[in-house]
Nucleic acid binder design. Structure first.
Lengths: 211, 211
DNA sequence: TCCAAAACTGCACTCATGGTACGGTTTCTC
DNA sequence: GAGAAACCGTACCATGAGTGCAGTTTTGGA
């Protein structure tokens, strides 16, 4: 999660990062529209002028937030699904390992998953310009494509028993994660996210594993 | 969806309903925090004084919106899952029929699903008082319990092949619907919701149906 | 038909926030 | 030590939530 060993950047870069982190937490808790710049700068310890030095307006903040969120998520997926492939040559086993890793990662979050920024933005679409909406859409497409590629590899070895559409199965993982985050938050029960991922894992086994 | 043959209410009740409908659409598109009372009353064709005659403050509006949303959803589920039970005495068949009906209902929405109010609120929790959060949590618990009851009936006849936790499977339906709504909205592809429900249906078959 | 309650309108405020503009000041870096 | 980067202070405007209250229209029932 935290940026380690990044190239040494200027002091301004650190401030930007701090603003983005605070803003993201606020947006996930109250929504973008209800997140005031004033409270962000108060927590970041700088003035309004300082904020507008870094971000042209609120929309520029949103753009950078999304970029940051997508990049972080991409790195996490690279790591988790890469690790799975390292640990098993069998595509199905590799995926099952990765799903277990994903579930554990989610379970290890101290206060539960803070929320999906893409979902948050989706429920406030009117507030964002086209560039941001394109960014979120493309990231979802990329994630779905990633899962689809993995499933193709599995299906080549283990023909699925029920005739399921692999595109839909790929979509399903994102759907379940997003839906389970919402349920976890709504019920104030962080554990549900982990359980849903593990259930999806069971269903993958059911779909592909030979009897 | 539309209220037919309701008891004839006062004119005020109709105005309230109109406000709630407009407000719900606005909240699902921009979030509660970014929905201004001014725009709601502009669309509803009344003054600010008129609005505050009906709702004490914005939070009272939110409370009634949630109540309305939950009640509408409950009625829809009653109808869909009741209809399934009418059409088949076999609990598994009845559930599969209901899921197909649910998928069709979602597919029939003219501009795709407008969004889940509970999900919208979940991503703006800080804006709402405890009563509203309790309302959303309880409705999710009720829906999960409803599905769990159905699954119990199925499992009593068809023992599941893989050892899956029925509570988790019950949760999964809500998760998938909520997640698929987000994906549909983000990708601007309404069809994905229907497909995810149908995939869930396939997986229910896989879990319970004998070979 | 009339009357009281319900359903509003109009206006005049307060306060918080997003956002703009701009000049000045500190702090780093070469 | 100079110049650029990273800020601070202040003043200002528009919008929107919310309050208060007096006045007006509409409606349903005796």
């Amino acid at each position: 999660m935290s940026a380690v060993l990044e190239a040494p950047k200027g002091k301004g870069e650190a401030t930007r990062e701090r603003i983005l982190e605070i803003a993201e937490a606020a947006v996930l808790a109250k929504g973008f529209g209800a997140t005031s710049i004033e409270e962000v700068i108060a927590e970041a310890g700088l003035t309004k002028s300082g904020f507008f030095y870094h971000f042209k307006d609120k929309n520029a903040l949103a753009r950078e937030m999304v970029r940051r969120y997508v990049a972080t998520n991409d790195r996490l997926f690279d790591e988790i699904f890469g690790r799975g492939q390292q640990l098993s040559d069998d595509p199905l086993q590799a995926f099952l390992i990765s799903l277990k890793l994903l579930a554990e990662t989610m379970a290890d979050l101290p206060n539960g998953h803070p929320g999906c920024l893409i979902a948050s933005i989706c429920y406030q679409e009117r507030l964002f310009d086209r560039e941001i909406r394109d960014l979120t859409a493309q990231s979802v497409r990329d994630w779905n494509a990633r899962f689809r590629t993995i499933l193709d590899g599995i299906a080549a070895v283990y023909p699925p028993r029920e005739p399921v559409d692999l595109d839909d199965v790929a979509d399903m993982l994102s759907c379940i994660v997003d839906g389970a985050i919402i349920m976890s938050k709504t019920l104030n029960d962080p554990g549900r996210l982990e359980r849903q991922i593990m259930l999806f894992r069971s269903l993958v086994k059911l779909m592909f594993a030979p009897n």
